[in-house]
């Protein structure tokens, strides 16, 4: 049967090398969620519009629903589960919690990926730059204000203490 053809993909997920066998049309998102059971990465639209499936692919934020599995072969991927283990995450996590940056929570892992990317890229972005950086991630609950507040707060904390602690 045509459906039984699978391809083998090797990739480093959250620092650990993994080999998975998937249908040729599988997306990076399918590998992450269905094969590796890392369900922090969500499918919100399947069309690269909402950012709920955002991950870091070789250090750059991508929508994993738009990345064919084959393209991820040989790459390094960080999902929210991996990010949550990193030291810099503490500060973001604390700020999102304190400032009300999560409501229903479905967009939240993607928001954290986007804000992590931002603090890596820019040392002290202003509010407008934060809005720009988060514009690829949709949230229907918060009206974005408390997400922007959360990121701004994290940046303020990081500026005070470069270790983020």
């Amino acid at each position: 049967m045509e459906f039984n053809n699978h391809i083998t993909i090797t990739l480093t997920i959250n620092g650990e090398q993994q080999q998975v066998s998937v249908p040729p049309m599988a997306r990076l998102l399918d590998i992450i969620r269905n094969k590796l059971e890392l369900t922090g990465t969500k499918e919100g639209c399947g069309a690269g519009e909402c950012g709920a499936c955002a991950v870091l692919l070789d250090g750059k934020m991508v929508n994993s629903c738009l990345i064919p599995a084959i393209q991820a072969n040989g790459s390094s991927v960080y999902t929210i589960e991996g990010l949550a283990q990193k030291e810099e995450f503490n500060c973001l996590e604390h700020s999102f919690h304190k400032k009300g940056g999560t409501q229903c929570g479905f967009c939240t892992p993607g928001m954290l990926i986007a804000s992590y990317q931002l603090i890596k890229d820019k040392s002290s972005p202003n509010r407008e730059e934060i809005r720009q950086a988060m514009a690829g991630n949709l949230c229907r609950c918060t009206g974005h204000q408390k997400i922007i507040d959360s990121v701004a707060d994290a940046i303020e904390q990081l500026t005070k203490s470069p270790e983020g602690q």
């Binding site: 369900t39 922090g40 990465t41 969500k42 999902t79 929210i80 589960e81 949550a84 996590e93 999102f96 919690h97 009300g100 940056g101 999560t102 229903c104 929570g105 479905f106 939240t108 892992p109 954290l112």
Partner: peptide, 14 residues
């Protein structure tokens, strides 16, 4: 928010 940290860490199981 009580369940906030689990949501932020992507641990909440929808």
């Amino acid at each position: 928010r009580r369940e906030g940290l689990a949501k932020i860490r992507g641990e909440t199981k929808y």
